[in-house]
Nucleic acid binder design. Structure first.
Length: 104
DNA sequence: GACTTGACTAGAC
DNA sequence: AGTCTAGCCAAGT
């Protein structure tokens, strides 16, 4: 099992209308310092992964090569009822809080 | 196995 | 609050 697969599995658990940060995903997988690697994994995620529900620690949409991807992410989030202010999600209100953790 | 590349972050200005 | 910097980690060369 590659780290990337573990990331995708975790992201698939994020419910509609909720978001998680790269660092949060990393922590859930037992690798609190691997936020950057999570981003790397998201770069090549399968279509069944709700990648748009992953934002950076500031609640914003991280920069990437194709700006189109950023716009799409904003659209998908709005469609799910996630409100953005100044291009940022209010993590206090929309952050996903899983009940159980996959690793320990 | 060393080196490079990012959809990252916390801390310092 | 915005910008910069130094660590961070997995993947692909």
């Amino acid at each position: 099992m590659t780290f990337a697969r573990a990331v995708w599995r975790c992201v698939r658990r994020i419910p509609r209308g909720r978001v998680a940060t790269y660092g949060q995903i990393a922590a859930l997988l037992g690798r609190p310092r691997a936020a950057r690697a999570v981003g790397h994994a998201m770069h090549e995620c399968p279509s069944d992964v709700p990648w748009h529900r992953v934002v950076n620690a500031s609640g914003g949409i991280s920069r990437r090569a194709r700006m189109e991807s950023m716009l799409t992410q904003r659209l998908l989030l709005l469609r799910e009822g996630v409100t953005l202010r100044n291009g940022r999600v209010s993590l206090a209100h929309h952050r996903w809080r899983p009940v159980s953790r996959p690793s320990a």
